[in-house]
């Protein structure tokens, strides 16, 4: 088992840091190129899910505990709505970012950055939470092993 997965382990160790870095790039560069909170959140979550599939869900839980993903999930929505409320407190309509900084354009930029960050946090939190919940089911703690078993079952029938 260990020997079979050594290639996967090495390759994923090489791949996961670039995946996470790329997610951050997509997150903060979304105003200029294609990208934004939704994509970044999904890519970030995909990085963690890859880690959990290769190294086991238990060690992934040590990296980010399930409680942390739930907190991330709700903090994202809070950040988004909070940005809206902040702009309301500063004298404009809900989610009108123009008043957040000295000039309207800078305010818009700041607002978009915050909102996209909120979206990214929620999407990452949601995807990882969902994955953890599926993986924590009885009989589902070893997803990679089951995946390897499936071809055998198919061959039997």
């Amino acid at each position: 088992m260990m020997h079979q997965k050594s290639v996967l382990r090495v390759v994923s160790k090489l791949l996961i840091p670039p995946i996470l870095l790329f997610a951050l790039y997509v997150q903060f560069h979304g105003d200029f190129g294609p990208g934004g909170g939704f994509q970044a959140g999904v890519i970030f979550a995909a990085g963690f899910i890859l880690y959990a599939l290769i190294f086991g869900v238990a060690s992934a839980r040590r990296v980010i505990p399930a409680a942390a993903t739930r907190a991330l999930l709700s903090l994202g929505v809070l950040l988004y709505a909070g940005t809206g409320v902040a702009s309301m407190l500063m004298g404009a309509e809900f989610l009108n970012y123009s008043v957040l900084a000295a000039t309207p354009l800078a305010g818009q930029h700041l607002g978009i950055l915050l909102v996209e960050l909120g979206v990214g946090m929620t999407v990452t939190g949601a995807m990882v939470t969902i994955f953890y919940t599926f993986a924590a089911q009885p009989g589902g703690d070893e997803l990679p092993r089951n995946k390897q078993n499936n071809p055998d079952e198919g061959a039997k029938t």
Binding site: F32, G36, G76, V77, G84, L95, Q108, I112, V115, G118
Partner: peptide, 29 residues
């Protein structure tokens, strides 16, 4: 401001929509 029009529509012009969709993702989780 941002050159990517999709981003500015998503976050600024249609901020309410996106807030709602974030809430849907949250609710699904």
């Amino acid at each position: 401001g941002p050159p990517n029009i999709v981003t500015s529509v998503l976050a600024s012009y249609r901020g309410y929509d996106t807030l709602g969709e974030t809430a849907v993702v949250f609710t699904a989780a």
